[in-house]
């Protein structure tokens, strides 16, 4: 009885949470999974569910989809790593070096692009990266480039657009994590003999790990499903799975096949995240094991010089 009350009490209290999860996550995903077993009967119907099969999955698992998936994975992994490489120093600078009263302004500047439509932002890069655009002209006039800039409609362009579009999603959690570590812990580290770099690698970054992980997830997962950046900046190279899914839903109006692609994309993405998380945990375990301080073994008395204070102090009050 107490258990049931606890369960129902908790459920009632957390209604907004589970209702949100139910209506905005579980139901839509369940619907997509359901559609993926259907088929498109004719041009006027997006899906039919009277004959369920795995045929759409067989259609999806063709070399065409898989090679696009690998290209997507490559763009996403490289994009996430680049966001991390840019985001870490920036967030560190923002959280550690910038005067607190200026931080909010700078953070707001990071977010300014988010106030603009995603598509428009990306189109901006199309204009910037064009062979006859201003960047190309500038690079040529200062002699950095022999001919016109030749990266629009390549994977490089998609990569640039992706980093630009998702960088704020990396910086925010990184900043929060590094800010949370606080000046006192960095001072403690310096106090104990660690310089700036050692403090960064032994305190600030390890403490920012949750932020790094969430930043990577926030960038990687939506990136795997992105299709706008690739559509606008990518050409024959740099096409992404999101475009295939979108074209099934919108152009071809084949919801069954689109759903199957979406489900495969979700599964593959989760698998990639799980793999990365597993590797991360393994690395952490190995690292901690290697650096473990063993206080159990009473080593040989080479510790004569290592005696801090000899025996334990004990007082009546403190023995509690």
């Amino acid at each position: 009885m107490r258990l049931s009350r606890r369960i129902f009490g908790t459920a009632a209290l957390s209604f907004p949470t589970w209702a949100y999860v139910l209506f905005f996550f579980i139901l839509p995903v369940a619907l997509v999974v359901w559609y993926s077993f259907g088929y498109k009967p004719d041009a006027f119907t997006t899906h039919a569910m009277d004959q369920l099969s795995f045929d759409r999955y067989a259609e999806v698992m063709q070399p065409t989809f898989l090679s696009t998936f690998l290209a997507t994975l490559r763009i996403s992994v490289v994009g996430t790593v680049l966001c991390l490489l840019i985001g870490v120093p920036f967030a560190y600078w923002l959280a550690v070096k910038v005067r607190p009263e200026r931080r909010m302004l700078l953070l707001a500047l990071v977010l300014v692009p988010f106030w603009t439509n995603f598509l428009v932002r990306t189109l901006g890069w199309q204009i910037i990266l064009a062979p006859e655009g201003f960047l190309s002209g500038m690079l040529q006039s200062i002699g950095l480039l022999g001919g016109p800039l030749d990266i629009l409609y390549t994977r490089t362009a998609v990569q640039i657009g992706v980093v630009y579009n998702y960088l704020p999603l990396m910086i925010l959690p990184l900043f929060v994590a590094m800010d949370r570590a606080g000046a006192t812990l960095r001072e403690a580290s310096r106090d104990l003999g660690a310089g700036r770099w050692r403090t960064l690698f032994q305190v600030t970054l390890p403490m920012a790990m949750p932020g790094i992980a969430s930043g990577c997830l926030l960038v990687f997962i939506p990136l795997m499903g992105d299709y706008v950046t690739a559509s606008v900046l990518g050409g024959a190279q740099g096409s992404m799975v999101g475009q295939l899914v979108a074209s099934q839903f919108n152009t071809a109006q084949n919801w069954a096949l689109g759903s199957a692609m979406a489900v495969v994309l979700i599964i593959f993405t989760l698998a990639a995240v799980a793999l990365a998380a597993g590797l991360g945990l393994l690395a952490r375990w190995a690292f901690q094991r290697y650096h473990r301080i063993d206080v159990t073994a009473d080593d040989a008395p080479d510790s004569a010089g290592a005696d801090v204070g000899g025996t334990a102090i004990t007082t009546e009050g403190a023995s509690r």
Partner: peptide, 10 residues
């Protein structure tokens, strides 16, 4: 679709 995939892989 195959053309798209193959040219992207190039």
């Amino acid at each position: 679709d195959r053309l798209v995939a193959e040219s992207g892989a190039a």
